[in-house]
Amino acid sequence: MKKTKISVENLNLFYGKNQALHDIIIQIPENQVTAFIGPSGCGKSTFLRSINRMNDLIDNVKIDGKVIIDDIDIYDKNIDVVQLRKRIGMVFQKSNPFPKSIYENVAYGPRVNGINEKKILDEIVEESLKKAAIWDESKDRLKNSALSLSGGQQQRLCIARSLAVNPDILLMDEPASALDPISTSKIEELIHELKENYTIVIVTHNMQQAARVSDTTAFFYLGKLIEFDKTRKIFTNPTLKQTEDYITGRFG
């Protein structure tokens, strides 16, 4: 059994009076890929954003419960949120590179963290682009605008940018939903390679993708965690009928 990286205890989240997450309890294993699945509006993205406190940025959000990462409750009042987010990279559905060069996109995070020596930055940029499987395609045009890359390349650049600040958790919110099948395969292959060094949590609407890339799967419905188990169990013989109905396409 893998060590737990993220332990969530009785997490409730309210948008004003509306409760979006109900008593979530989950242990996300280290160096594994965990997929969150469920119909639109089920709370999976809200929950993902609770793991790096991105919901703090939204007005009127109230959260109770604990999210413990490596024995530290990230909702503790003494937590430095900026430091926390350095440890937790995030990749969104739509790639969002800065309108700067490929190099600057990746070097941005380390620079903010105070690394200014060119040699070190060069190393970080190369290493991050290699880890994100985009080095070969970008090494000869590092000074070109990141916006000149294709959609799939931009998404891998965003992953490289996340890796450059050396996080240990990567949160991905539908990272391949806007990409063609070949770019999607590259992202999925990358996720598979990255899990050796990172704990990855991915929200996806594509059930085949969840089945292909993840080790564990959590099914959410109406803000509740319905079932959490090994992916091979969820997709072959789920315990609950509600999960079976969803994964076999019997309700939406």
């Binding site: 085949q208 072959t236 789920p238 076999t248």
Partner: peptide, 9 residues
């Protein structure tokens, strides 16, 4: 259709 679970069985 890439069936899963009981459908796949």
């Amino acid at each position: 259709h890439q069936p899963v679970a009981q459908d796949l069985r």
